[in-house]
């Protein structure tokens, strides 16, 4: 039987929707429209001179090797964050799925990092890995590794990837665990009787059946890597050294706030918006087809 809510008055539904729509318009559409508008302007910081320059800001961006470099950096960063985040949390969920005793303790320990704000996570990891005083730096130096992410761009990338992934593992873990527990045990048993060992059972049965969850998490993790990691990067490397960790969203902030280049920053926002829309459409169109429900 279908549950339908029937409104007797003509205006009540609209009145109920109005607050949400108002918020969406004020906090999402209006700034977005303004960003698109600014993207076509060249203006000084205070808005005292504005000049319509058409696509000039966009052209300048694509001619700027640092902007193009930021694309590459973002791609590397989001691939690392999404894949390690998913792989590690899948491993943990698979292991947690088998545990009977103390299961609650493990799950709690694995879930709480999600409550930590991104900036705090960044600072936490920055401290542990601080080139002079960090605990992990000390251990690494003892093993003969020269750890100095203030100079070494690759190390800085590693640091922000670790801090970002750490936070996201909890979220992925929860979904994977739920997904695993929704697979009927009899399927695994049937596969075992059919002769599949643990690894084959995982890859031919469990993993395909987890594909809705995996796909969902892929989308979420990539969007997370694109946007929510801003706090981590701002609290640690600020896009450095030498732009090694300057992902697109950070560059938008940097150019808009620190460099007061509102036209360039807005143009970047617009491009970023298109990228994410495209990514999401691709994911839903093509990856979705292979998903088993």
């Amino acid at each position: 039987m279908e549950k339908r809510v029937v409104f007797r008055s003509a205006w009540l539904p609209y009145a109920l929707l109005a607050p949400q729509i108002a918020i969406t318009i004020v906090f999402f559409f209006w700034p977005a429209v303004q960003a698109v508008w600014f993207a076509f302007q060249l203006q000084d910081a205070f808005g005292l001179h504005t000049e319509f320059v058409g696509l000039q800001n966009f052209e300048a961006l694509f001619a700027d090797e640092h902007y193009l470099g930021s694309f590459r950096t973002t791609a590397v960063f989001s691939v690392l964050v999404a894949f390690s985040g998913i792989a590690i949390s899948l491993l943990l969920a698979t292991m947690a799925d088998r545990v009977l005793r103390g299961a609650l303790a493990y799950k709690t320990l694995l879930i709480w990092p999600y409550a930590v704000a991104p900036a705090i996570a960044g600072v936490l990891w920055a401290f542990m890995f601080a080139p002079s005083i960090g605990i992990v730096t000390y251990v690494l130096k003892g093993m003969g590794v020269d750890w100095n992410w203030i100079i070494q761009g690759d190390q800085a990338m590693l640091l922000v990837v670790m801090a970002s992934v750490w936070k996201q593992i909890s979220y992925n873990f929860l979904f994977f665990l739920a997904g695993l527990q929704s697979i009927p045990k009899s399927l695994i048993e049937a596969a075992a009787i059919d002769g599949a060992g643990p690894a084959r059972r995982f890859w031919t049965i469990v993993f395909p059946l987890l594909s809705p969850t995996t796909f969902f998490l892929l989308v979420v993790n990539i969007v997370y890597a694109f946007f929510d990691t801003f706090g981590v990067i701002d609290a640690t490397t600020q896009g450095g050294p030498a732009q090694a960790t300057q992902i697109l969203v950070y560059k938008v902030y940097y150019d808009g706030v620190k460099a007061a280049d509102l036209g360039g920053s807005s143009a970047q926002s617009v491009i970023l918006m298109f990228i994410v829309i495209t990514l999401t459409v691709i994911q839903f169109r093509f990856v979705e087809r292979k998903v088993q429900y």
């Binding site: 009927p184 009899s186 399927l187 048993e189 049937a190 596969a191 075992a192 009787i193 059919d194 002769g195 599949a196 049965i205 395909p208 059946l209 594909s211 088993q292």
Partner: peptide, 20 residues
């Protein structure tokens, strides 16, 4: 012996077919 080494086959109540 592991199930796969016992040379048996089982039919489950909920069929346990691989849905994918």
């Amino acid at each position: 012996l592991e199930p796969k080494d016992r040379d048996i086959a089982m039919v489950f109540q909920n069929y346990a077919l691989y849905p994918h």
